[in-house]
């Protein structure tokens, strides 16, 4: 039995606990027991993305210490996993401990598809769903092929959603445009950020989506904030919630 560590990003821990539990349920249903190491807090991405590497460095070191005992680390956020896998090298120059941990850190969909090779899911979700392709998962973890690159198309999140009974995927006109969250960008470039979000919402609505899902709750927090303010007929749910069979 592999020892699987659960990495729950700080904002999911504090604001969206059910996304964490949905992740646990999906994994347990597949026979995986997970452990949640309580010392974890934040991977350091907000600091790193503002250029404050000195503030991010101790958090990166903590992360490696906390998670290195596990055979695999699974996390319901493409962005936080991308921080660890694609950006931590800055804090660990040829560090054996980090090099050993790095390939063992997975975004949830990636773990389900690549490691567990999931090909059926015993859940039902009879709704029209639009998949918002969160950028870091898409272009840094390559959870799917981006619309810019000319390669054979693939998409791990879609592959899983297609296993859900009754779920109908709808296609927005722009398949993978950014929602405009972008961490502190959401606040420092408020006008552009909100316009980007409004445009994504309109695109998913015209495609007929009732529910918008994503591999990152941060994108959905931003989109849901806009949706609720404008009272648009669209719900936001993290992909872990759909995979766990949560109702709307």
């Amino acid at each position: 039995m592999p020892r699987v560590g659960l990495f729950i990003p700080c904002y999911i821990d504090q604001m969206y606990p059910d996304v964490g539990f949905a992740t646990v349920e999906v994994l347990e249903r597949l026979g995986i027991t997970v452990e949640f190491p309580e010392a974890q807090t934040c991977c350091g991405q907000p600091m790193a993305n503002t250029g404050c590497t000195e503030a991010a460095a101790p958090l990166a070191r903590r992360f490696v210490e906390i998670f290195e005992p596990y055979d695999a680390v699974v996390c319901p956020s493409g962005s936080c996993v991308a921080m660890v896998r694609a950006h931590y090298h800055e804090y660990f120059h040829h560090d054996l401990r980090y090099d050993a941990l790095r390939p063992k850190v997975f975004e949830l969909c990636e773990y389900l598809v690549d490691v567990l090779k999931v090909d059926k899911l015993p859940v039902r979700f009879p709704h029209k769903v639009g998949l918002h392709q969160s950028c870091h998962g898409l272009r840094e973890l390559r959870l799917g092929s981006s619309s810019e690159t000319i390669v054979a198309p693939f998409n791990k999140a879609k592959q899983l959603l297609e296993l859900i009974d009754g779920l109908e995927l709808v296609e927005p006109a722009r398949p993978d445009e950014c929602c405009g969250f972008g961490g502190t960008f959401a606040v420092s470039e408020e006008a552009v950020s909100c316009l980007m979000g409004h445009d994504r919402i309109a695109d998913h609505l015209q495609a007929g989506a009732e529910v918008m899902t994503a591999t990152d709750m941060s994108c959905l927090m931003h989109l849901d904030g806009l949706i609720r303010r404008d009272k648009r007929p669209l719900r936001c749910m993290h992909i872990a919630e759909l995979l766990a069979g949560r109702p709307v």
């Binding site: 250029g51 993978d176 960008f185």
Partner: peptide
């Protein structure tokens, strides 16, 4: 450099 959501497109 901050006029960017780091989407990578």
């Amino acid at each position: 450099p901050h006029a960017c959501s780091l989407c990578g497109s």
